[in-house]
Amino acid sequence: MPINLYILLAVVLFCIGVVGVLTRRNAIIIFMCIELMLNAVNLLLVAFSKMHNYAMMKEGIATGGSDGQLFVFFIMVVAAAEVSVGLAIIVMMYRNVHSVDINFLNRLKH
């Protein structure tokens, strides 16, 4: 399968994520969109690393290109941590303002 299709999918996913973050006000949906972007990047990393791996194997290096996959795991761990913190914040926010609309969080202005 050509790499182009993977890239296209990743770009589409990423753009959906960006647009979602920009247009939606619900914190949870924004959160999901961020996850979407992260996963688009993960997808790219996996796709490129596989492609890289093929190229290295031709030269006789079996483990070539595994860094990208390592990174994916790394990102997933970080994302998990982030989600836990982020959700905690959202819960706190809901407790305080009874809403998860981010436009209520504009106190920095004052």
């Binding site: 973050v21 981010i102 436009n103 969080l105 504009n106 106190r107 202005k109 004052h110």
Partner: peptide, 14 residues
């Protein structure tokens, strides 16, 4: 510039 609107920040960032 620090409007406090998270959306604006993100838009600017993007």
């Amino acid at each position: 510039l620090q409007s406090g609107q998270t959306g604006t920040y993100v838009l600017l960032m993007v």
